[in-house]
Amino acid sequence: MTTAAADPAAAATRRFEVWGDPIGHSRSPDLHRAAYALLGMPWRYDRRRVDEAAFRGELTALDPTVHGLSLTMPLKTLAHDAGARRDAAARATGAANTLVRAGDGWAAFNTDVGGLARALTEAGVAGVPRARVVGAGATATSAIAALRRIGVGAIDISARRPGAAAPLRDLAAAMGLAVTVSPMDRPVGIVDLTISTLPGDAPVPADVADGLAAVGGTLYDVVYGTWPTVLAEAWGRRAQEAHPGMTMLLHQAVLQVRIFASGSPDEPLPGEESVIAVMRRALVGG
């Protein structure tokens, strides 16, 4: 497939943005700009603060030179709904973090699923028998899909309000996973891997965090800007392995760059290993 970079006229006018609220903390510009520079793509990548109420109007009025968008919270469900077509991950989760122009409309993708799956594989936990997802928000849907992708067969969904996890339970069951739902202060069973999808500033009592750590295996916390989290500290008290969400951020961005370059998250970038390396350096050094 011909990449967008092969068309100098199109490449010269192509722009991308990351939207969310808040957005000032986003590391996406560092990642994307590093990739574009190495690939020789004269593209721009900027950030814009957009909340849920403004999303539809901003999308409708968007300058046509903006070819694609990265979407963060709280816009992922709205981005999914804006897609005239959606990839399998977006359809499965009802969320999208990437929009790219497709004819007169938008194609929606969820690269959080693939990014998390790649991050978990990098952490050495692919294929563990049982995992726990902490939290019941939008990111938890991507975590469940990522766990299925890396071969996990059974999950426990741990939520403050177990009733709120019913859609996640149904999603996991539809994917063929054995699933239980438990309160955060009474997790069900011992697992090999815990994925926390809680915000970095989520108030988790120390005894609840310690209880999760006691039966939690390796921790992968999707948070990357606030570290250590309360959960990471609990894992540390037990000298257990804990990973921040930096690698998920990295790998979902790699898949976004693939989409912006070729239209597909499955089309590797030219010299992709070098691209990943320069993006990783930008993330660590930024």
Rank of each mutant, 00 (worst) to 15 (best):
V66T: 15
L69C: 06
L69R: 07
S70D: 10
S70Q: 08
T72W: 12
T72C: 10
T72V: 12
M73H: 08
P74L: 07
L75G: 07
L75I: 11
K76V: 00
L78W: 05
A79H: 04
A79W: 05
A79T: 04
H80M: 01
H80W: 03
H80K: 01
D81M: 02
D81N: 03
D81E: 15
A82Q: 01
G83M: 00
A84F: 02
A84K: 05
R85W: 11
R85L: 13
R86E: 13
D87Y: 04
D87V: 03
D87A: 09
A88I: 06
A88H: 13
A89I: 06
A89K: 01
A90E: 03
R91N: 04
R91S: 13
R91A: 12
A92C: 09
A92K: 11
A92N: 08
A92F: 07
T93M: 05
T93E: 00
T93A: 02
G94L: 04
G94P: 05
G94W: 00
A95Q: 05
A95T: 14
A95V: 14
A96K: 02
A96I: 00
N97D: 03
N97C: 02
N97S: 00
L99E: 02
L99Q: 00
V100G: 07
V100I: 15
V100E: 07
R101H: 11
R101G: 07
A102Y: 08
A102L: 11
A102H: 14
A102S: 13
A102D: 15
D104I: 07
D104W: 06
G105A: 12
G105T: 02
G105P: 04
W106V: 01
W106M: 00
A107Y: 13
A107D: 13
A108F: 07
N110F: 03
N110K: 03
N110E: 01
T111C: 02
D112R: 01
V113S: 05
V113A: 11
G114Q: 06
G114W: 07
G115L: 05
L116F: 08
A117Q: 08
A117D: 11
T121D: 14
T121V: 12
G124N: 12
G124T: 13
G124K: 15
V125T: 15
A126Y: 05
G127I: 09
V128G: 09
V128N: 11
P129N: 11
P129V: 09
R130S: 09
A131T: 07
A131Q: 06
A131K: 10
A131E: 08
A131N: 10
A131R: 10
R132F: 05
R132Y: 09
R132N: 06
R132L: 12
R132T: 06
V133I: 15
V133M: 12
V133A: 10
G135M: 09
G135K: 06
A136S: 13
A136Y: 10
A136Q: 08
A136W: 07
G137V: 09
G137L: 10
G137A: 12
G137Q: 08
A138L: 13
T139Y: 03
T139N: 05
A140E: 04
A140L: 06
T141W: 03
T141R: 15
T141E: 13
T141S: 14
S142T: 09
A143K: 07
I144A: 03
I144R: 03
A145Y: 11
A145Q: 14
A145H: 12
A145G: 09
A145E: 14
A146E: 14
L147H: 14
L147C: 14
L147M: 14
R148C: 06
R148F: 04
R148P: 02
R149E: 15
R149L: 14
